[in-house]
Design a protein around this nucleic acid. Structure first.
Lengths: 248, 248
DNA sequence: CTCCCGATTTGATTCAAATCAAGCCGGATC
DNA sequence: GATCCGGCTTGATTTGAATCAAATCGGGAG
């Protein structure tokens, strides 16, 4: 068996372990191309809970693909306000917001023990010139990240506390489904304090909203495990829970 | 004078009219490359106030560079909640969030009579394979858009009403400066209702906050014109105006 | 098993911003 | 100049979520 084939096998093995193929970088590439990419990638780096992958301000030397586990990214303003901008699961790409400045614009931290693939950026960047399909893939991922950010902006700007929590649960459940898992139960790997920060609210409010949704029979919360009993109702809440009616 | 030089001249003319060179696409390209890009671009399309460039859901056929004027982009959720996600000035690139789905994920509308360059996407995409420097430029612009969105997330998630208004004013003033203009006066091309929507608040609150900032002698508001009297103070407000101290 | 400590929940109170309701421009029209 | 109208401001009131304070839970160490 030729060397490239062995590489491909390894890669697919690694990727089947680390994420769904369709979310991972090497899709749409020929065996040869995958082999070239694989040479770059440092597969399966482990990060224990609370250990940072990178910190805002670090020089950008690599971007990362989540293999297993869960991570958060957060930005901090000059004066110390911190905002969590995303929770990331297998298949998600981290660090692309730092490409413009070649310096990380956010910090990434493992929420639980996680494995990630590290992709040295300079070498990836060089490879992009040779592999149009990889370039397209990467641009699409960046584009997707942009529209996801806009969704979160809508949540923070226009929804009340139940709408925000419901939106998050819908989003986490949907992402489970995309990764081929059952919708529910959703596992909240992050602490309540992270949840609250992400949604622009306080932990007490998070707690109360979860209770209210449970009392309505829509979800069933048990510590970090959330069973979704009525997904449709949750989706309704995720939008109707908005203050500021649609009248302009 | 060879043809490529004439092309370059036109381009630079167009771009000097339409935006600062450093913000526009063709930087870092040779005269020849610029010529190839220019053949693609439909320069100086006019859009009157309130006319949409594109609407969420439209097939993505082109992206746009703002030449003159001002525009807003907004996303709408399935249930009709609308969130303005950005205000855009000369040099800004619009439509990149739609690349993943090849369908616009937001709507873009002129806030005042504006001119934009239209860049057919399919042809640009093809050109990217040949022009590494253009590819890098575009990726950097997308990356920058990502980190700007994160800044807005921080504003919506962690700042109170004065912090939000102050942040916006600081941002608009800084962008004026980047375009080689004086910091102040800032011209608010958008209606109060757009301002409020963007910042996740109500017009009444916007009005009151502007008054309070004026009473503090930090700004001087006259209809859509805002004179910044104390930029430092404004920057302080833009962060200290945060509820939710830095304790988690 | 018991103690301890951080995380979470629950309750009471306060407060910033939304909502409701007029009033006030300033420019376009007649 | 008088009238109209949309956009903006101002004031009074309400309310959702923050804040303050305390109780409870659960897991790890001894």
């Amino acid at each position: 068996m030729p060397a490239t084939f062995r590489h491909l096998d390894d890669m697919q093995q690694a990727c089947s372990q680390c994420s769904l193929a369709r979310l991972c970088l090497p899709c749409g590439l020929g065996a040869d191309d995958v082999a070239r990419l694989e040479k770059l990638v440092d597969v399966g780096r482990k990060f224990a809970r609370n250990v940072p992958l990178f910190t805002q301000g670090d020089r950008l030397t690599a971007i990362y693909v989540v293999g297993s586990g869960a991570l958060k990214t957060s930005t901090m303003s000059a004066d110390g306000l911190e905002q969590i901008t995303g929770f990331h699961y297998p298949g998600d790409l981290l660090g692309l917001d730092g490409v413009a400045a070649m310096e990380h614009r956010c910090s990434a931290t493992a929420l639980e023990d996680s494995a990630v693939c590290r992709i040295p950026f300079e070498r990836l960047d060089a490879l992009l010139d040779d592999l149009p399909s990889l370039r397209r893939r990467l641009m699409r991922l960046m584009s997707q990240a942009l529209s996801e950010d806009d969704q979160l902006l809508l949540t923070l700007g226009r929804k009340n506390s139940e709408g925000r929590i419901a939106s998050l649960l819908v989003s986490l459940a949907s992402r489970r489904e995309m990764r081929g898992m059952s919708l529910s139960p959703v596992h909240l790997s992050m602490k309540r304090t992270d949840l609250a920060n992400y949604l622009g609210m306080r932990i007490e409010t998070v707690s109360r909203v979860l209770r209210r949704l449970q009392e309505s029979g829509i979800i069933c919360v048990h510590r970090s495990l959330v069973d979704i009993l009525d997904f449709d109702a949750l989706q309704t809440w995720s939008s109707c829970g908005a203050w500021v009616g649609d009248r302009e």
